[in-house]
Design a protein around this nucleic acid. Structure first.
Lengths: 247, 247
DNA sequence: GGCGACAGTATGGTATACCATATTTGCTGC
DNA sequence: GCAGCAAATATGGTATACCATACTGTCGCC
């Protein structure tokens, strides 16, 4: 029973509860692709690995399932969510809707300082682009979208956006990195900033709504083209999330 | 140990898991106001009452907390969520945004059959209005909004809308019933249906976005007026949910 | 040789026991 | 009489033990 000293937190039970910390740990593993979509989560295994018992781990899994990051089936191991192409598109569509609404609101609410901050992030993103630093580019890109939503000061909106973003995080990562859409994406960002500065709520909304979806659809076309070309060779799943893992 | 036969489900462990069933039970109690906002949820008490142990109950609470229906604080009893006025407005604003987006989408996607169904619900709502059946009126109203969102076929959107709706359910109930806004609300519904039929996505969106918010703001004004009039007399909380109970 | 059934094992589901902490109450001292 | 502290109790947090079920591997029968 003494092998439970794995985590070695300095504050054993301070402000955040264990299930939430555990959930955060798993969240990070999922977002960092240490736990890839479709992976079965063995409760005893992961619990021992994290140095906790199954009870808080299971509560964490319930949280993550409600957030849509893992999928629970009765009497079956929890699996890291592997949204179908259809669901991926649904997620991005809603994400775009939220960002479009946020952008329209931001046209009223954004202070000059807010806009300056966004432009700063935009330039940092450009810098990363020039350096070819794809990870930094990706993160600045995320920051811009997150900051735009944050301008609304609507915490409920911010939270829903955060969750949706987490659900498509890997996807956006791949989308942003694997496509040759950088130029147009950057142009769109510049357009968005301009419209925000000119307070054109009606114009900014459709741009934001389509922004991520466009990237997705283009990625889809590329993926289909690649598939048609390669023929087979490990289709990198992502399609049928309910397919058995064995076989 | 044999007193666990309280629930008396015909299928003890079929498709739905216990924590989710428990969550649903608590959800219903919250929506039906058996558990009113701010109420402390005693784990042992409620667990015994529901005929389950604390383990699935706690998992259910984690689910409900993630959905925003209950609030968890470290080492403190879970409480039924009591959103502040500010958060209530944020919730309604996002709800409106989702419905506005859904309505715009529906202008493209809705089949004549969909629109007929909506009109049917609308007339049922009018019937309830004429009868003075406030509960039926409320439910038909809910059905209309839910059906409109369902037209999009976007399950992610539908689910987020459902959750937001649950969070403001009581609120909308009160809003719809306690205000003298029936006429204008009905007029708005008729406008919405007309615009949907004429496929005017750009016009329908702002109507839906403001629809619920308008009702809320009017209710707020009425509440303030009533408060100013009554002076004191049990302010029916709803304001500061984080305020200490002691003092 | 293949298919099916049965048994053993592993895994998720639930209950319970135990622990730490927070709250409350009563006692004591000022 | 009030305030503060201490102890007891109640309550949430976690671990573990036990149970039911699903999966797997093997054996036997067709």
């Amino acid at each position: 029973m003494d092998l439970a000293a794995n985590i070695t937190e300095e504050t054993p039970s301070e402000s955040t509860l264990k299930p939430e910390r555990v959930a955060q740990l798993i969240r990070e593993r999922i977002l960092e692709d240490e736990l890839s979509p479709g992976t079965a989560i063995r409760e005893r295994t992961l619990a021992t690995e994290l140095g906790v018992s199954r009870t808080p781990l299971r509560e964490a899994l319930k949280i993550l399932a409600t957030e849509g990051l893992v999928e629970l089936a009765p009497r079956r191991a929890a699996t890291v969510a592997a949204p179908s192409v259809r669901e991926q598109r649904e997620l991005l569509q809603l994400l775009g809707a939220l960002e479009g609404f946020a952008g329209a609101l931001a046209c009223t609410l954004a202070t000059p300082e807010d806009i300056r901050q966004l432009r700063a992030l935009h330039y940092e993103m450009l810098a990363a682009y020039m350096r070819g630093d794809r990870l930094a580019y990706f993160h600045r890109n995320q920051d811009i979208h997150t900051s735009l939503v944050a301008i609304t000061k609507n915490r409920v909106l911010i939270e829903h956006h955060r969750r949706l973003n987490a659900q498509v995080y890997r996807l956006r990562y791949v989308t942003n990195l694997k496509t040759e859409r950088w130029e147009s994406a950057i142009k769109e960002h510049e357009l968005i900033l301009d419209l925000l500065e000119r307070r054109e709520a009606d114009a900014i909304r459709p741009v934001l709504e389509d922004h991520v979806l466009k990237a997705f659809d283009q990625m889809q076309r590329q993926a289909e083209a690649r598939e048609a070309e390669a023929g087979k060779g490990e289709a990198r799943k992502g399609e049928a999330s309910k397919a058995g893992a064995k076989g």
